[in-house]
Design a protein around this nucleic acid. Structure first.
Length: 140
RNA sequence: GCAGAUGGCUGGAUGGCCGCCGCUCGCAUGGUUGACUGUGUGGGGGGAGGAAAGUCCGGGCUUCACGGAAACACGGUGCCGGAUAACGUCCGGCGAGGGCAACCUUAGGGAAAGUGCCACAGAAAGCAAACCGCCUGUGAAUGCAGGUAAGGGUGAAAGGGUGCGGUAAGAGCGCACCGCGAGCUUGGCAACAGGGUCGGCAUGGUAAACCCCACCGGAAGCAAGGCCAUAUAGGAACACGCGUUGAUGCCGCCUUCGGGUGACGUUAGCAGAUGGGUUUUCGCAUCGAUGUUCGGGUUGGUCGCUUGAGUGCCUUGGUAACAAGGUGCCUAGAAGAAUGGUCAUCACUGCGCAAGCAGUACAGAACCCGGCUUACAGGCCAUCUGCCACU
RNA sequence: GCCGCUGUAGCUCAGUGGUAGAGCGCGUCAUUGGUAAUGACGAGGCCGGGAGUUCAAUUCUCCCCAGCGGCA
């Protein structure tokens, strides 16, 4: 029972949250970014929380800022409408993200959210450090 | 027209839609006596650079240290004059080097105060000396004794250079010019330049080797520093225990038996204890409040935080850097850190016959200023030089 | 943001104004029936890059580049 509707976003700011997601979250890789996601313990009516990361490998400060802005833009337009509420996401920018076509970014984001929501990343391996939750039921 | 030199400016433009961060005005609502403030919403207005970069110098500001200061050590700077809050920056000049020229480069004090070093090669690498040679004498002769430093060779560098005279051969041994040094003199604030006199080669290089001389510098940095909130809650060690004060126990006195009190202040007081005799204590013990150091917790909020050695234009002074005066302007203030996405038109570049396609440099404020250095697609302006052509 | 440190052979490091070394690793040969160990020989370096001082720079000076660390 995932509510996909108007969804206000809260930005992640603490390093602790980023580390917890990189350890315990699930991930989906696209050419321009990596999406990490984790359903929250609380109710799914809570606002989604999103963090953005662009490491020094991506480029200099101008490129990193631009990558984060584009990631913020696709998160605003995709996650607020197409993603389940109450999850925590981290979007990690890759080197191609600073001039990747914007339309492709949008469709990739929708694809990644659908894959994570249906539990496609859990299928090949039985590697679950976290319990499966209503996220795996939500797709069916 | 071609080739070049120098200085300066600019750093894609306009509009539509959806979003971000401060400021300001209003409305609604909550807290508050109020000032004020939280949330939501609407309007207005602002929102990265010439280098924001590297963090290489100089200042403001803050904290710490310190009698004022000076000196030693250490570090830096280094022709002269000026500008400046200051500088290792800038401006003007001088010397040296490069370029046909415009112009450019230049850490450019002192090597006859001292010490060190100069590998290899070479006879010799620093108070000069003499391998081959040259010359003289001697000897039958390889040679030996003496003179010499022109020539050879080595080297980055061989103790002035060129020419003439001179000589046995040579040599600043003599002379001329150049270089070098010391006085004199002219110009200049000075660095320095010009002229002339004398000396007669003595003084190799290296100071981005030690060093000497002159000048400058207390240290750390907004993660500086102040306040508030939170905190198993006032942790451990050392010092102090002189004064002031709290708790507990004991002691003295009073008591209504619950408790209270430890008075007074030497011109005093005398209820008591201890001590003293030009005087002095006011209970005693333990723990703590105090100071220093170390640790633990919070990784929050707020101030610092943007009007300043600010800047456009004009006038005046100055060759200039710059200064003075007038007038106009306000131009980011974030905190996982604000400008993005898309569409249309135009500009420029590349490819292409064309339609069109692709691209638009270097790069993101973090307390603030003055510089330096480094990166940079292009475009524009001004001044100047050389060559060619024409008048 | 501020303050420091380090770049030398494939790896870990010495070194000093005068032709750049050690250990491990690599190759060839010897030894052995063969391998290891051992021994001998050898290759491999613009000493992070660019300017300057010097006769001469890995070393001294300046400017860049890369990597690492500390400070709330």
């Amino acid at each position: 029972m995932t509510e996909t509707g108007t969804n206000t976003l809260v930005t992640l700011k603490k390093r602790r949250d980023f580390l917890r997601l990189s350890r315990g979250g699930r991930r989906w890789v696209t050419p321009a970014f990596i999406l990490q996601a984790m359903p929250d313990n609380q109710k799914n009516t809570a606002p989604s929380r999103v963090g953005y990361t662009a490491s020094k490998k991506v480029g200099n400060a101008v490129v990193r800022n631009r990558v984060k802005r584009r990631l913020r833009e696709i998160a605003r337009s995709v996650i607020s409408s197409d993603a389940p509420m109450g999850w925590t996401y981290v979007i990690i920018g890759r080197e191609t993200a600073h001039n990747y076509p914007f339309e492709k970014l949008l469709t990739d984001m929708k694809w990644a959210i659908r894959k994570l929501q249906s539990g496609a990343d859990l299928a090949p391996k039985s590697n679950n450090k976290h319990k499966k939750r209503e996220s795996s039921q939500g797709a069916g």
